[in-house]
Simulated scan of single mutants.
Amino acid sequence: MNDTAPTISVLGAGRVGSVLARAAVEAGYSVNVAASGSPADLELIASIVMPGTKPMWATDAIAAGDIVVLALPLHRFSTLDPAQFAGKIVVDAMNYWEPIDGRQEFFEQDDLSSSEIVQQHLTAATVVKTFNHLGYHQIEEDRRPSGAPDRRALGVAGDDAEAVDLVATLVDRIGFDPVVLGSLREGRSFQPGEPVFGTPLSRAELTALVGHPAAA
Rank of each mutant, 00 (worst) to 15 (best):
P6Y: 03
S9D: 02
V10G: 01
G12Q: 10
G17H: 07
L20N: 00
V25R: 01
Y29F: 13
S30D: 12
V31Y: 13
N32Q: 11
S36A: 08
G37P: 03
L42Q: 13
I45S: 09
A46H: 02
I48K: 14
V49S: 08
G52N: 02
D60F: 00
A64S: 15
A64K: 11
V68M: 03
V68Y: 01
V68R: 03
V68D: 06
L74Q: 11
H75D: 10
H75W: 12
F77V: 06
F77I: 09
P82K: 13
V91P: 01
P99Y: 15
P99L: 14
I100A: 15
Q109I: 13
L112Q: 13
S115Y: 01
E116L: 05
L122T: 04
L122M: 13
T126K: 12
V127L: 03
F131L: 01
L134K: 03
H137F: 06
A157P: 05
A157S: 08
D159V: 12
A163T: 05
A163K: 07
V167Q: 08
L170R: 03
V171C: 06
R173K: 13
V196A: 15
V196P: 14
V196W: 09
T207I: 09
L209Q: 12
H212P: 08
P213L: 04
A214C: 02
A214W: 03
